[in-house]
Design a protein around this nucleic acid. Structure first.
Lengths: 229, 229
DNA sequence: GGGCATTTACTTGTATGGTAGTATGGTGTA
DNA sequence: TACACCATACTACCATACAAGTAAATGCCC
């Protein structure tokens, strides 16, 4: 053991609570549009399906409601939240603001190790072209999280995840309306700007990247008005 | 009834659930440092105090935990979350990024009505100098919310509230370490920049305003290390 | 007195029962 | 036929009971 501080990592509890497992499952189902906006899901029904009691289901529901993914109406029922145009637009706005500042930081002091990591991810993303939307979304999430953590803003990532969820829901409604290749190209431009220490370029590229959804949104809303509020 | 679309406003439920009331009360208590970081609060204890069952208490706890204000340790107890320096710094970072973009928008198209509102608030804030920290915090919250809503980013305000909570907790630990007068002066500078349509100035002023806590934070941490993680 | 196994009192996690409120479909009436 | 009324079958909300795990106090042994 050397002189430097020992890394103290919190031990993960071996058992993940029923609530957390259920929450993760439902969250994925909602974002991936396996549970469409407006769908009714009742506590007792879900409890029965998973072979657990109503209580943990209820707790998972509460967290989903806090995240804006579920709409609990007392004495009436719980429904997968319809997509609020304003909520999606504001989520996008928040992401743009925060991630723009993140890449500015990264461009100020480019870290070779980080850049190598990112370039590796770009290569992996290339391989996903033509694959499932879900796989690319996952890679995309890792990419953006790497940026946040590279700028030592791991806690900020938590809110970005929530914002990203709102946006990804929309994308999953119609995976035809965005070009994966174009997104990867934008990712590459961001990495290049960071690597070159070009702060304004990094900001511009990130903002453009996150503005992409603005053109898809009206199309999707027109196609699937019943999914929107 | 005229030809224009009728405004459909959602009817508010008259009764606020026990859970929501309790959550609000506990949240205020934690932010206002009536419940200090590290304090143990048990479900059954709180239930007894408020004359309700454990169930709604538990649900309020879950939401508080999601907000990062409570630390629920299974089979061990629930504790008011200690303040994480990283969490506060990242919350500040997020606020700076988002609110900077908000005032940029506002400066692009200055709205006389909004500016009049804000100037009125500045006058009210002046009257609060020397008053309780809690009163000023409330006025401060209204000010920043007005900016967000003025830019039509009401949904974004939701996440800002969560970030603000982390920061306000710190400030309440030691209300001596910041000058209300200086904060109001900064508010005024922000409003002036918006009114003048000066986008870069608005951004700069907002960023400076939100960087203020950076100087207080180390002092407070040194004074009350037991409150920090 | 010090170390250790055990007990005990506590915690949160989960299951279930009862209540009040809401939607719906059927029925009687004008 | 159209409408008001009511029985019924849901819903989520809240209370209560039990299970599983933790930690501190206890008492025993060395």
């Amino acid at each position: 053991m050397s002189d430097r501080k020992r890394e103290i990592v919190a031990l993960q509890p071996v058992r993940i609570s029923v609530v957390d497992q259920l929450h993760a499952a439902l969250r994925m189902a909602i974002i991936g549009n396996d549970l469409s906006p407006g769908t009714r899901i009742s506590e007792s029904e879900v409890a029965q399906q998973y072979g657990i009691s109503r209580q943990p289901v209820r707790e998972a529901f509460i967290t989903l409601a806090n995240e804006g993914l579920l709409d609990i109406r007392p004495q009436r029922g719980s429904f997968v939240a319809k997509i609020s145009l304003a909520a999606v637009l504001d989520a996008r706005f928040v992401r743009e603001a925060v991630e723009a500042d993140i890449v500015k930081l990264l461009a100020d002091t480019p870290d070779p190790a980080l850049i190598a990591d990112l370039r590796g991810q770009l290569a992996r993303q290339q391989e996903l072209i033509g694959g499932s939307a879900r796989d690319f979304m996952e890679a995309d999430e890792i990419f953006h999280r790497t940026l946040a953590e590279g700028a030592d803003k791991g806690n900020a990532w938590r809110v970005l995840v929530e914002m990203k969820a709102q946006m990804d829901r929309v994308r999953f409604l119609s995976s035809m309306h965005f070009s994966v290749a174009r997104l990867i190209e934008q990712h590459r431009a961001i990495v290049d700007a960071i690597a070159g220490g070009d702060r304004p370029a990094a900001e511009t590229q990130m903002r453009q990247h996150l503005q992409g959804i603005l053109s898809d949104l009206p199309v999707i809303k027109q196609e699937r008005p019943e999914y929107f509020l």
